[in-house]
Design a binder for these strands. Structure first.
Length: 800
RNA sequence: GCGAGGAUGGCGGAACUGGCAGACGCGCCAGAUUUAGGAUCUGGUCCCGAAAGGGAUGGGGGUUCAACUCCCCCUCCUCGCACCA
């Protein structure tokens, strides 16, 4: 034993010394280099990191889980791809840079260095040859390339729309980045405002149905993530019914204007007593022109639209509206109904206008009560023939029988829905419609630190894409003032903005916006398969070797953001013929947050237990075991020092056991013929442990795998004949069992037993000896009437 | 409101297709060793009971020889969506 620090009787395991040695060894031998021609591939991916500060135990947990899978699979004989990279563009890095008053790139690369040191301290086995860094032109060039391809396929839109505006970050945000009406960035959280701006969008809604259908294939994903995505996409079926706008002035007839209205309840069409328009719908600006209500409507819209979105749209807020002075005709009944503007109507869903059925919709009911709009009952509860409108305290929203509905009277409402749709379609008064809640993905940002959008605005030719051969459009580095001012930062950088039109060669201007950072992360899983390609984002053959991802680990907070976006990208790339899979990832594992004193660890908030100091003090294997042993990976985890105590003792006990008995370690299967009773028992326990660890590692239940190893260690310590061949064999096997979790210690023990051997991770994980997996006698409890009456010891295999 | 998941010792958590509830670890108690320890080792540790025995997996019912596990009702907690017509 080399210099065991002995304080009193204890041997303290010299973690840092051992860890450095084997980290160098793996690096020199390229132990974890990817096999470029995998026979049995396994792609394990952890979500890459925003390098915006130090790395805490939450990160350590994520990357340790991935590393554990990588090492285990490698020992099962798989060719593993386990890459890592840096999600280096985006608001967080930029804001942090502004705060520290240095260039975002300096700050970002400093952070990358720091994070990389931490990952190496932990001994995470990445293939650094495939590292990607999204803020490098070699990477973001392909963002631009893909943007242009999307443009060619009609998947890019530029349009004016009410968009989410973060007043603090001074930029627009995607819907997925607005959480509870606030900016998604934890250090910002400013209330989001609506602004009407011209922006770039990816038409992800074109893929709404495909993304929904694809969820059915993802049986390796947690159910809750699939349901969250399903709700986010939010498919609903119904009909668009054309109401007719009544001319303002009967004397001067105008061409009839149709007001399409989406509903899932056409069975209640006879109960419509008003129409309601969203205050931010385009029609709201013109509908009241020339009516006596015009000033009131203008005042109402102005007042409502300045309110923050959360306030205006939160369920439960009192509904408000204003009559427009106009009327429309119900196409089914010919009835005349007033048109209102109402704050509860969403401009962005359906047609921005809804039919009001106070009798059978709770929102409409509340609105009608407030403004004295008539309530009409057209669905009777099952078994009843009527319902008095003035008796109602709430809308009747359940299924029932249609009444007061002309020819449809007596029809069950469920049947009525189909009948009314058919009827309206036949008469050309409406058409079946499927609506989605998913919105197009707003990808333009008015910030500096991102991929420039490769588009040029020419006064003559309009919008012209940058030709492929001119890519990348480089992000200018000599920017002095990249602080946000409410318009695009790059708009103020003349030498960047000024260019010539690729079509007419006349003077033109570049688009000043940059891309959402989630564009970068939507295809990085493909770039890893061919990280140095300078002709294409990746080669199809290379991508097909590795995709789909076999095991993807990351936080659940990405359920309705990144995890939809990267599915979308993969599908588009599939449709472009660039990759064979339609779904990027077979198995998803969401990792629980790590908290400290009740608050989630966070780099930006400087709250956490930091990897660097922790590893220096306790060692990497302790850090790894602590996060793996504390709880199953998907569960949230509260960090405490007690967590560290247990696993430290475990490793020390392992260390001492080998220090005393390392000389008997061997790898030759024992002669089972010569077993004593105690031998047999120990050998069975070994095989049970191997079996348990194998199974648990396949299902990522690392906490119970480690518990099983602790149990086995207890058995070893309690075994009498520590000089025996069998005991030595168990020690040998124990080294293998330890390998995925405490790789440094395992490698050290391996080389002490086999000084000239190659890495332990080129060895095969042990298989259990099926003949010795169960004890041959089994104690069976016998219960009669719930009382334990006796125990029966029977040989295994005895039937009932 | 809708949707999903959960509730097991002082704590984190185990328990296969129903089969000895509380593995493993922390903490705690006792003992050993040590000049000493916050090191290490041994034993103990769900509750009531001296014991025999009995009671315990949020609460109440049910199915079963047998229920943390399956069925029904209730309470509470966490997460997601939140006026989507």
């Amino acid at each position: 034993m080399k210099n065991p620090k002995s304080k009193g009787h204890s041997l303290e395991y010299p973690a840092r010394e051992i860890e450095k040695r084997w980290q160098h060894f793996w690096q020199e031998r390229r132990t974890f280099a990817t096999n470029p021609n995998p026979k049995r591939k396994f792609y394990v991916l952890v979500m890459f990191i925003y390098p915006s500060g130090d790395m805490h135990m939450g990160h350590a947990r994520n990357y340790t889980i991935g590393d554990c899978i990588c090492r285990f699979r490698k020992m099962l004989g798989y060719d593993v791809l386990h890459p890592f990279g840096w999600d280096a563009f985006g608001l967080p890095a930029e804001n942090a840079a502004i705060e520290h008053n240095i260039h975002p790139s300096v700050w970002t690369f400093d952070s990358i260095d720091l994070c990389k040191r931490n990952l190496n301290l932990l001994g995470i086995a990445y293939d650094w040859d495939r590292e990607v860094t999204t803020c490098r032109p070699e990477y973001y060039k392909w963002n631009q390339w893909l943007f242009l391809k999307f443009w060619e396929r009609g998947l890019v839109d530029r349009r004016e729309a009410f968009v989410n505006w973060c007043p603090k970050c001074q930029t627009v945000l995607a819907n997925e980045q607005v959480i509870d009406g606030r900016c998604y960035r934890s250090t910002c959280s400013a209330p989001i405002e609506k602004r009407k701006l011209v922006q770039w969008f990816f038409r992800i809604t074109d893929y709404a149905q495909a993304l929904l259908d694809g969820l059915n294939e993802l049986d390796g994903w947690p159910e809750n993530v699939r349901i969250m995505q399903q709700n986010w996409i939010g498919r609903s079926e119904g009909i668009e019914v054309d109401f007719r706008l009544e001319p303002l002035d009967a004397q001067t007839p105008e061409p009839p204007t149709l007001l399409p209205v989406f509903t899932t309840r056409p069975d209640t069409l006879y109960g419509v007593t008003f129409l309601a328009l969203a205050p931010d719908a385009p029609l709201a600006e013109t509908i009241a022109l020339g009516t006596p209500q015009e000033p009131a409507v203008r005042e109402f819209c102005a007042r409502v639209l300045v309110k923050p979105e959360i306030e205006r749209t939160a369920a439960g807020t009192e509904k408000e509206g204003v009559f427009t002075g106009r009327f429309a005709t119900n196409p089914l009944t010919g009835e005349r109904v007033p048109i209102w503007i109402a704050d509860f109507v969403l401009a962005g869903y359906g047609t921005g206008m809804v039919m009001g059925v106070p009798g059978h919709d709770q929102r409409d009911f509340e609105f009608a009560k407030k403004y004295d709009i008539p309530i009409r009952v057209v669905i009777a509860p099952p078994g009843q023939t009527s319902l008095a409108p003035d008796q109602l305290t709430a809308a009747f929203v359940d299924e029932g029988i249609m009444i007061n509905s002309g020819p449809f009277n007596g029809t069950p409402s469920k049947v009525g829905i189909e009948k009314v749709i058919d009827h309206l379609e036949r008469l050309g008064l409406g058409r079946r419609k499927v609506n989605y809640r998913l919105k197009d993905w707003l990808i333009s940002r008015q910030r500096y630190w991102g991929t420039p959008i490769p588009m040029i605005h020419c006064p003559k030719c309009g919008i012209v894409p940058v030709p492929y051969e001119q890519l990348p459009v480089l992000l200018p580095e000599n920017v002095r003032d990249y602080k946000p001012k409410g318009k695009s930062v790059l708009a103020g950088v003349e030498e960047f903005i000024t260019t010539t039109c690729p079509k007419c060669q006349g003077p033109a201007r570049r688009d000043p916006d940059t891309m959402d950072t989630f564009v970068d992360s939507s295809w990085y899983h493909l770039r890893y398969t061919d990280a140095h390609n300078d002709r294409l984002p990746f080669d199809k053959a290379e991508a097909d070797k590795w995709l789909p991802i076999d095991s993807y680990i990351g936080g659940i907070e990405h359920a309705c953001g990144h995890l939809i976006f990267f599915r979308f990208f993969t599908r588009v790339l599939h449709d472009m013929g660039m990759v064979s899979v339609q779904e990027p990832c077979r198995n998803l594992h969401t990792q629980g947050m790590v908290s400290l004193e009740g608050r989630t660890m966070s780099s930006s908030k400087r709250h956490g237990v930091w990897v660097g100091p922790f590893v220096e003090k306790h060692g990497a294997d302790v850090a790894r075991l602590a996060v793996l042993f504390a709880a199953p990976p998907e569960k949230p985890l509260e960090w405490t020092d007690d967590l560290v105590t247990g696993v430290t003792r475990f490793l020390n006990r392992v260390w001492r056991l080998f220090a005393e008995h390392g000389s008997v370690v061997n790898f030759d299967p024992p002669d089972t013929q010569k077993f004593t009773g105690a031998d047999r028992e120990l050998y069975i326990r070994l095989n049970q442990t191997i079996d348990k660890v194998r199974k648990d590692c396949l299902t990522l239940q690392f906490n119970t795998a480690i518990a099983a190893e602790m149990e086995f260690l207890n058995s070893l310590n309690g075994f009498e004949d520590k000089q025996s061949r069998l005991f030595g064999f168990c020690l040998g096997r124990f080294i293998y069992l330890l390998a995925p979790f405490a790789p440094h210690l395992a490698e050290e023990l391996w080389h002490r037993a086999r000084p000239d051997a190659d890495s332990l991770f080129n060895e095969r994980f042990p298989e259990c000896d099926e003949r010795f997996l169960v004890f041959d006698r089994l104690e069976i409890p016998v219960q009669v009437n719930g009382r334990l009456r006796g125990r029966l010891t029977v040989p295994v295999g005895t039937d009932e």
